[in-house]
Every structure is written in C-alpha cells, then in structure tokens.
Write a protein that binds this DNA or RNA. Structure first.
Lengths: 206, 206
DNA sequence: TCTGACTAGTCACTTTCTTGACTATGATGA
DNA sequence: TCATCATAGTCAAGAAAGTGACTAGTCAGA
C-alpha cells in the first residue's frame, strides 16, 4: 500500500501539469488537484518514481477521502464537466509523516527491455537494437524535459542557492534523480545498441 | 504478464548464484536451475531489473512447465531435499523470441524513498536523512558487487574485447546498467542527505 | 456535419503481488 | 543438546494493480 502515499505527496507538491491553467488563486501551500490533473502529473513528473493509471488514482482518491486523508470539494463548471478538487488534510499529512518514518521497501524496477537484453545471446538482435535506440531517444527527450522543469523550479537562482533557500525542494530533488536516470538510460541504450550492432546476427546459440 | 519472460531469461543465462556449488556438469548452454536457486538469483543479479518472491517463481515455473516452455526433471538427493531442475525448451526460446520482437512496456520504477523525498518539505527530515544514507551505503555495496561480477564475467579480457568476442554478453550488459544505476543511487542519496541536513528542521510548512 | 481530441470520471473484471503459515531434513554453532 | 540456518519447496487468502469498456459534454478542424 503505497500508491496512497505517492498520491498524497503529489497533491502536496505544486508541480502541477496545468501551470496557470484556469483561474485558481494558488495561494495556500499544497495545491488542489482533480483526479484528472493528478493523472496527468503522474504521467509526467511523478511517473519518474511511480506509475499509475487514471482509474487507480480515482479509486485511491475515493478511498483517501473516505478515510479523511484528503478532502474533496465539488467545483461546478459551465463549459466543461464538473470536477472535484482534492487537498491533503491534517490527517493526510500525519499519514505521510508516519510513512516517512517507517522503513522503505527496497525500490524496484521492472523493465522489459532489460529482460530482452539479458536474453540477447539467444534471440534475434535486430528488433532489440531498434528498441534500444527508440528507448535512447525517448530518454533524451525526457532529459530535456526534466532539464526545463528544473530550471523552472529554481527560477532565477542557481542550484546551490535554490537548494539552500528555496521552498519546496522535494520535487526538485526527485527530478534531479529522474534526470540522472534518463541520462544513464540514454547512454546505456546507445552503448548496447552499438555493441549488438557490431556483433551482427546471433552467434552464441545454446 | 512478463515475469515469465524474466524467468526464461534468467534460466538461460548462466549467472547463477551457486557458482561451482554441487557437482553438475555445466556443459550444455543455458543452465538448469531449481526454483530455489532461481529465487536467489532474483534476489541478487536479476533483482536489478526485476523483482519477485520465491512463491511467485515456483508458481511461474509450474505454469511454464505446464505450457511446455520449460522442462523440469527431478533430482534425487540424499543429504538434502530432492529438487527439480528446470531448463528452457525450444518452445520457451520461441516465446522469448516473440517477446523480444514485441514492443516493450515503458520501464517502471517504484520507490518509497523517492515518494518521501518528494514530500520532504512537509515532513520531519530526520528519519529521511538516515534512510537516504542507508540507501547510499547499500548502493555502494551493490556497486562493488556488480563490479566484481563484471570482472568475473569478462574473465581476463578487457571490456571492449569481451563485448566484441565474448559469448553470453547479455547478463554483462544488464549488469553494466545495474552498476550505473547504483552509482547514481549512491550519489543522489548522499547529495540529498547533505542538502536536507544543511537546511535543518522543516521550514516550509504549508 | 462528422471525426477526433480534451475534460472528467465511473464500473466491472482479471491478473499479480504480497503475507503468512506449514512441511521436512541436515548441518552449524553456542 | 537445543536453536538456528540453509535447502527445497507448497498452500491459501487477501490486497494491490492493471485492463477494457463506457458515459457525456465541448471544441477544433476537415
């Protein structure tokens, strides 16, 4: 059970997709998000370290609300469907605090491409090479995206300065890791593709 | 459904935990593993890109056998419980080949610590710092482990040479990525811990 | 005018994962 | 001698995650 914590953390951090979309006064600390917005955030930033589909988020938000960890309010809209905005309650904060104190499960990764590379000696490497290069280019795009996000978050300040004095450095720090990850992803993908290409078709069979 | 492919890939690659444990003549290509050995492999090397508990592996092996993708044979042992060794069949290879050709799902990570860091501005950072440093030291240990594994796999050759001519480079390539990952993990953990430490107790609340 | 995309979300079903307990035997160590 | 670890698994229940399909209105473009 940890999607809930990812959701709480995401609700707290103002790294919303919308930007200055619509009119909300963004005043009071941790933002308010609709399930829909949250789903988008999970597709971009948060997806860095957690992944979830919209349906899961809606379901989780419902549960969290029932338990009083988030509070939702209805917002009536004329031109588009009504929506419910959620914010973290005190109880939600307490839950997050407890979670932070508890020991973490070891992080885990699951990666189809790695499985394929692991078996690279026993299968046709053609399609694999393609996928590796595709992966590398996706990683490059993400690298750029994260770079922009980071610049935006730290505003005018340089990194050291921001990390010393900025408020809300959490998302910045996780984004930093995402950036490093994608950089490595890219390099690895290119390297492996190059190695496999150089070796040509399968050699070691069985 | 991709644990099965991870299992097949793991069975193929001779990166077994046991080393020269027990007496088997290791002759014919992809190794043979018991569920138990496989479980250990998943706890070390493979855990790099896939994670699974022993029960899942036993269950998956049973399914794979029923479908003819792996073949098991009973090995009677005097001094310890009997075991069943599995190897990948032709059909299993074909399944892996098909999997390799199909498009991969985007890799995904799930990491409690990252969630906690994301929320770092709203919670007590004390325990978090501890966990980050713990993580860093685990990562360092893994870094060393992977370094050794890599040296062992490439034998006397240097890396370029090995990747050009070695047989069974798949596990080597995935291990390379694991190494890079853990290196980044370590650096990130230390960096974030230092940043949080320098900031002292919570400042930005709500 | 029809198509498709965007906003906003719900329902039902299936697959996977995780937890915990249980069976056996032999070897190691206090 | 008693406890614990390592080998080698099995079973069952429940929580979490993933998939697919569906509603419904708005807006932009062909």
């Amino acid at each position: 059970m940890a999607l809930r914590h990812a959701v709480l953390a995401a609700l707290l951090t103002g790294d919303g997709s919308g930007g200055s979309d619509g009119g909300g006064s963004d005043g009071d600390g941790g933002g308010e998000y609709s399930g829909y917005q949250l789903a988008k955030a999970f597709d971009i930033g948060v997806a860095n370290f957690w992944h979830a589909l919209p349906q899961q988020l809606y379901a989780e938000l419902a549960k969290l609300e029932k338990e009083g960890l988030v509070a939702g309010r209805q917002v009536v809209q004329e031109t588009r469907p009504n929506k419910r905005l959620f914010r973290v309650t005190e109880a939600g904060l307490a839950e997050l605090a407890a979670f932070t104190t508890a020991t973490s499960k070891p992080s885990f990764i699951r990666d189809d491409l790695m499985v394929k590379v692991q078996a690279a000696d026993s299968v046709d490497t053609g399609p694999l090479i393609e996928q590796l290069e595709e992966r590398a280019s996706v990683a490059e795009a993400k690298t750029e995206l994260f770079g922009k996000l980071l610049r935006k978050m730290r505003g005018g300040l340089d990194e050291e300065e921001f990390l010393r004095r900025g408020d809300r450095i959490g998302p910045y720090l996780t984004c930093l890791r995402g950036l490093a990850l994608e950089r490595e992803n890219r390099e690895w993908g290119l390297r492996v593709a190059a190695v496999l290409r150089a070796r040509g078709p399968i050699r070691a069979e069985r």
